[in-house]
């Protein structure tokens, strides 16, 4: 029987299970493990579970060095933006060292952080920064959209022999959904069709999957059958599943919470242009954030970010474009 779990709970349970399975897994970050009552400290002790100062460069650099010596560190960064102050470690150390050493070392570590906090956190704590990481050879980037994927992807991240940026969306943390029983793993680079459909393919990640599924429900009432595909990891990216879906539906709407310019949506659009152009009955449509920072005020925030209504409108526009050209 699948277990019903909150998104945040699924992550915590999976990390706990991985720490039980492998004594090389360590877990540390700021504002965690502050007392002996902390459940991770109680289970695994203060060698493997630690509080850190506010020192992201040291936290991530220490993870890189420890990973090369056989540990599997999971660094809790809380907010993806905090990774930016240590971006050398994310972009230019962790994913490069194996390559530069000619394959002599491995750097198995997980940089875990929340992102996309569309709840009034304004310009510096609401962002989607995965587009800056998805083009870095050697780095993997996971973006779960439900409890099962959150659970299965963090397990795969911890077991992977490469550095993984694991980003969990703040707006999903309290959502409950089933997690399969047993040691459930979600492989990297395998997209999941979250809702099958025949008229249009919607590709979305993380919170945008939830919005796309809601939009698909609204579209169904108008007789439009939308297929929702979630890549689950943007590096590696499962282009095959997306192209296969486009082959079936002939239309593509890309939903991305990040600003449009240089977004994951743009990368996917490029892949489909090269590998799936002949299947398209209408031009690709992108529903992204506007090319602005995220504003504080709720009315403006809503204006900037993608929504169910914007997705519905985009789908209807590609359906109409097709009708016009027939």
């Amino acid at each position: 029987m699948p277990r019903e779990m909150m998104f945040a709970e699924a992550i915590a349970v999976a990390i706990t299970e991985e720490m039980q399975r492998d004594s090389n897994v360590v877990f540390y970050g700021q504002n965690m493990a502050m007392t002996d009552r902390d459940p991770f400290v109680r289970k695994f002790g203060k060698d493997r579970v630690r509080i850190t100062p506010i020192s992201e460069t040291a936290e991530l650099g220490i993870a890189v060095g420890a990973a090369m010596q056989g540990l599997r560190p999971v660094v809790e960064l809380y907010m993806a933006e905090f990774m930016l102050v240590a971006f050398d470690e994310v972009i230019n150390e962790a994913p490069r060292l194996r390559y530069m050493s000619g394959g002599q070392v491995k750097v198995p570590c997980v940089f875990k952080a929340g992102f996309g906090f569309a709840a009034g956190w304004a310009g510096q704590h609401s962002n989607c920064t995965y587009h800056t990481m998805m083009g870095i050879p050697g780095l993997r980037v996971a973006l779960p959209s439900c409890s099962a994927d959150a659970y299965g992807l963090i397990k795969s991240a911890i077991r992977d022999d490469n550095p993984v940026v694991y980003l969990h969306h703040y707006m999903l943390m309290l959502d409950k959904s089933p997690v399969p029983d047993g040691d459930y793993l979600v492989p990297f680079g395998v997209a999941d069709v979250k809702r099958p459909g025949t008229d249009v393919t919607i590709v979305a990640t993380a919170w945008m999957v939830k919005k796309s599924l809601a939009a698909a429900e609204m579209l169904a009432k108008d007789g439009i059958s939308a297929e929702v595909v979630d890549p689950r990891t943007v590096a590696p990216l499962d282009v095959d599943t997306i192209v296969k879906s486009v082959k079936k539906t002939g239309r593509l709407v890309l939903v991305d919470q990040a600003p449009r310019h240089a977004s994951a949506a743009v990368v996917i659009a490029g892949e489909v242009a090269e590998h799936g152009f002949k299947y398209l009955k209408a031009p690709v449509k992108m529903v992204t954030a506007l090319d602005t920072s995220v504003p504080y005020s709720e009315t403006m925030e809503r204006y900037v970010l993608p929504s169910e209504e914007k997705i519905v409108a985009a789908v209807k526009s590609v359906m109409a474009m097709q009708a016009a050209t027939v």
């Binding site: 650099g61 220490i62 060095g65 420890a66 060292l97 070392v105």
Partner: peptide
């Protein structure tokens, strides 16, 4: 194990190796 070409970053890697030890 490695040498980093970016000034100062190897200091953190060394501390990480020490944490593993």
């Amino acid at each position: 194990p490695t040498a980093s070409g970016i000034i100062g970053q190897g200091i953190a890697h060394a501390a990480g190796a020490a944490y593993a030890a």
